[in-house]
């Protein structure tokens, strides 16, 4: 029982971390970033590089954030910016970017599955249940991501301007806010978050050039049902992630892998606002 609850919470934490970058990009830019999977992969391979260079495993996280931000900056400038008025084309172009990232990584690192070192190893006892310390750490990491985004949005000038752009872009521009700049910074942060999430999830499994793709669809569905709100995203990650854990445990892991997609699609059909207010 304790293990099941911990599985649900840690799964929700992972899903939240993975989806948060997508959420802020969709919220501010109104663009569906299909390169999200690619950014996750970049984060995973940042961890691999840190491992191969024999550096401290904790360095994987800042390395991933920096790599994601740099990549995000380039992508926003040359690909996203011309496509603000063409949201469907933005999906395709970012998808193409995902392919480019995947192929570049394949060429540089090879196609095979590789493993990265974990900064925290071992297990601990929680209410008499032995549980992986790293998975428990992920709860903290997700909370830190959530706290960081909330602080950025609510306690900084940039966050205030980003919220203004989300709510009413023309009015924001009329007050002198450079919405293009707000978008650029948001995209960079979203890419950095995605990359960080990639680095966070790799110690659980392994890295391969297409590791981001399976996460993309689940992250998407979660963002869609949360109506671009961080709090709703947390609720969605807990409920749908919880359902996934339950189905995987009691029915079948394969069907469990589909739980989020199917439930989210049905939820949106019945209640288009999802977990958001509406």
């Amino acid at each position: 029982m304790t293990a099941l609850v911990l599985d649900i919470v840690t799964t929700a934490a992972i899903l939240f971390a993975v989806a948060s970058g997508l959420l802020i990009i969709l919220g501010v830019l109104k663009i569906v970033n299909f390169a999200h999977g690619g950014f996750l992969t970049i984060g995973g391979y940042s961890g691999l590089v840190v491992t191969q260079l024999g550096l401290n495993a904790w360095l994987a996280y800042p390395a991933a954030v920096v790599a994601g931000i740099v990549m995000g900056a380039v992508v926003e400038r040359f690909v996203i910016r011309p496509l603000y008025d063409r949201p469907l084309d933005a999906i395709l172009a970012t998808w193409g970017l995902g392919i480019i990232i995947g192929q570049l990584i394949t060429i540089v690192f090879g196609r095979e599955i590789q493993f990265v070192q974990t900064p925290i190893t071992g297990a601990t006892s929680v209410f008499g249940e032995t549980y992986s310390l790293y998975r428990l750490f992920l709860i903290l990491a997700a909370a830190a991501v959530a706290g960081g985004i909330a602080a950025l949005l609510n306690a900084t000038r940039l966050g205030l301007e980003a919220r203004a752009v989300i709510m009413n872009e023309p009015l924001a521009r009329g007050l002198g806010i450079n919405s293009g700049h707000v978008r650029f910074v948001t995209f960079c942060i979203g890419a950095g978050l995605a990359s960080l999430a990639g680095a966070l999830i790799t110690p659980l499994s392994s890295v391969d050039p297409n590791m981001g793709v399976p996460w993309l669809v689940n992250a998407f569905m979660l963002v869609l049902v949360s109506s671009v709100s961080l709090a709703s995203l947390a609720i969605a990650a807990l409920t749908l992630g919880g359902a996934q854990v339950l189905v995987s445990t009691f029915i079948s892991p394969v069907i469990g892998g589909l739980t989020i997609v199917v439930l989210a699609a049905l939820l949106l059909r019945i209640r288009p606002a999802g977990f958001g207010h509406g």
Binding site: A164, M167, L171
Partner: peptide, 10 residues
């Protein structure tokens, strides 16, 4: 402006 003058949810 005349309409949409404020950020209602801020």
């Amino acid at each position: 402006p005349q309409e949409q003058t404020l950020f209602q949810d801020l």
